[in-house]
Simulated scan of single mutants.
Amino acid sequence: MKKPLCFTLGSLAFSLGFVGIFLPLLPTTPFMILAAGCFAKSSPRFHQALINNRWIGADLQRWEREGTMSRATKKRATWVILATFSLSIVVLYDRHWLQLMLLALAVVLLFFLWRVPENKPSVNSLSNRD
Rank of each mutant, 00 (worst) to 15 (best):
N124A: 11
F14W: 05
R45P: 14
P30E: 01
F39L: 06
V107S: 05
L34S: 08
S15N: 03
N128E: 14
R76H: 13
I89T: 10
G20W: 01
G67C: 00
L16Q: 00
P117W: 09
S125C: 05
I33Y: 01
W79Q: 12
F85Q: 02
T73D: 12
D94G: 10
A35R: 08
E66G: 00
L87V: 12
A77P: 04
I89Y: 04
N52L: 11
I81W: 08
S43D: 10
D59P: 11
F85N: 00
L98P: 05
I51Y: 08
N52M: 07
K120G: 05
F85D: 00
A40T: 04
F18G: 03
L26Y: 00
L126P: 01
P121W: 07
N52Q: 12
G57L: 10
E66Y: 02
R71L: 11
L110E: 09
L100T: 03
V116W: 07
Y93I: 06
A35L: 09
F18P: 02
L50S: 09
R65I: 10
I33R: 01
D59I: 07
F85I: 00
R45H: 13
L109D: 06
L23M: 11
K120D: 06
N53S: 15
I56D: 12
F112I: 02
L60F: 10
P44G: 13
D59K: 08
L110K: 07
A35V: 05
F111H: 11
N119W: 06
E66K: 02
A36K: 05
I81G: 08
R65L: 08
T73R: 15
A106T: 01
L103Y: 02
K74Q: 14
A13C: 03
A106I: 02
T73Y: 14
R71I: 11
A36M: 13
P24G: 02
C38I: 07
S86R: 00
T29L: 04
S86H: 00
N52G: 15
L25S: 00
I81N: 09
S42D: 13
F39K: 04
R76C: 11
L25Y: 00
S127L: 06
N119Q: 13
L109I: 06
L105P: 02
P30F: 01
V108N: 13
R65P: 04
T78I: 10
R54M: 09
